[in-house]
Amino acid sequence: MSVSTCPSSPVSSRDVQACEPRELDAVDRAIVLATQAGLPLVPDPWGAVGREVGLSGEAVLERMQAMQARGVIRRVAAVPNHYRLGYVANGMTVWNVDDAHVARLGREVAALEGVSHCYRRPRHLPHWPYNLFAMLHGRSHDEVERQASVLRECLGEACRDHRILYSSRILKKTGLRLAGSRPGAASDIERRG
Rank of each mutant, 00 (worst) to 15 (best):
Y83Q: 14
V88A: 08
E20D: 15
S8P: 07
N96P: 07
R182Y: 12
A77W: 03
V32Y: 01
E52V: 12
G106S: 15
R169Y: 12
A37L: 13
Y87C: 06
E52D: 14
V32C: 01
R191D: 14
V115M: 07
M135V: 01
A103T: 15
M92Q: 12
R104Q: 14
R74M: 03
A148V: 03
R74H: 13
A158W: 02
G193D: 05
P80G: 03
G54H: 04
V150C: 05
S4Q: 04
Y83G: 06
P129I: 02
A185C: 11
D15V: 09
A18N: 09
L155R: 04
Y130A: 00
H162R: 09
A30E: 01
S13Q: 07
R22Y: 01
D15W: 08
A59C: 07
S8L: 11
A185K: 13
R107P: 00
S167H: 13
E157N: 12
F133A: 04
S13D: 10
E52F: 02
G114E: 02
R51Y: 11
A179E: 14
F133N: 07
M1Q: 12
N131Y: 06
S12I: 10
R75T: 00
M1T: 10
A134S: 10
Y119D: 04
G86L: 13
A37Y: 13
V72L: 05
N96L: 12
H101V: 07
V94C: 14
A78Y: 03
V94D: 07
E190A: 13
T174R: 11
G156L: 04
V16K: 13
S140W: 14
R182W: 13
G50F: 08
V49E: 04
G180D: 10
A48D: 15
Q17L: 15
L176A: 05
I164G: 00
S116N: 07
H124A: 10
T93Y: 02
D44S: 15
L132Q: 00
I170W: 06
H137K: 11
S4T: 02
T174A: 14
R160G: 15
A66Y: 08
R29K: 04
V76N: 01
W95P: 01
L112R: 10
Y83M: 12
V94E: 09
L39I: 05
L41N: 12
G54N: 07
V72E: 00
Q68S: 06
D161L: 03
D15N: 08
Q36K: 11
C159P: 03
G57T: 11
G47H: 05
W128N: 08
E58P: 03
R121C: 02
N131T: 10
R123M: 12
E143S: 11
E62C: 06
A30I: 04
V115R: 04
A48N: 08
